[in-house]
Write a protein that binds this DNA or RNA. Structure first.
Lengths: 123, 123
DNA sequence: TGCGAAACTGGCCGGGTGGCCAGTCCGTCC
DNA sequence: GGACGGACTGGCCACCCGGCCAGTTTCGCA
């Protein structure tokens, strides 16, 4: 480490692509004032790169479906969502059904997880 | 391999702490084969750092609770979790109950969302 | 050796969830 | 005008979920 005052900035790598990860490790290994995290060490920052093949198309959701999805992510039940949006529970179920379909999910929990993964919603 | 070879690795910064962001920008600006992303440019990788003030306390979850939580985040039902872990549905409910309790959630969807927010699990 | 924590299991039950059927409005595009 | 998709609503029903009660074993720690 450097003998001066400020300690090195510690970076960790979370890269899907092995080639890119390798290149970055090599490039960053020679930078003074900067260090890659040792296994188990907590880093100051993390370098991330999601696999581009994972999110080619963004899902086309209607405004209403986005409304329902947002409330689902808050843990709201169909009844609560219905009250919030001033619609019937049946309509909520209808939208939830399309959501499960479009997001290829098996249930509301899976739907929220998928949506968060694809960046459709922020948690 | 120099003139018409591999282009620079493009990095973008998403750092809460201005001081750290500044330091990193300075350090990385002088590295050959590496470049910071221009505004709007798509980067090969992103350097992220969450604000440490955001997550002060980590929740104490048992190993079994983490097992159940991970499968919940995959959208698995209690029955599926039970099969995966070779335990009864009753035991799964038991762990889910503690999870809802510890994560201060109203249901499994809420629990997964809370856990993801607090960094307990990755989606 | 006793005591608590963790993991595990059972029964019971009210309410929630999701899938199926059906239908009505309203706006757009051909 | 006719077709179409989006939003909305209803009934019905099997299944799931979460909360309540109860119990067991196994482990480590005082």
């Amino acid at each position: 480490m450097s003998a001066g005052n400020t300690p090195d900035v510690v970076l960790s790598l979370e890269i899907d692509d092995p080639a890119l990860a390798d290149r970055l490790a090599t490039l960053l290994g020679n930078v003074a004032g900067l260090r890659l995290a040792a296994p188990g060490e907590t880093a100051n920052a993390t370098i991330v790169a999601r696999d581009p093949r994972v999110m080619p198309e963004d899902i086309a959701l209607t405004q209403r479906e986005l409304d329902v999805l947002a409330l689902m992510a808050e843990g709201a039940s169909n009844k609560m969502i219905a009250r919030q949006l001033n619609i019937s529970v049946h309509t909520v179920k209808f939208h939830v059904g399309s959501l499960l379909d479009k997001l290829d999910a098996t249930g509301r929990t899976d739907a929220v997880a998928h949506a968060a993964r694809r960046g459709v919603i922020e948690l």
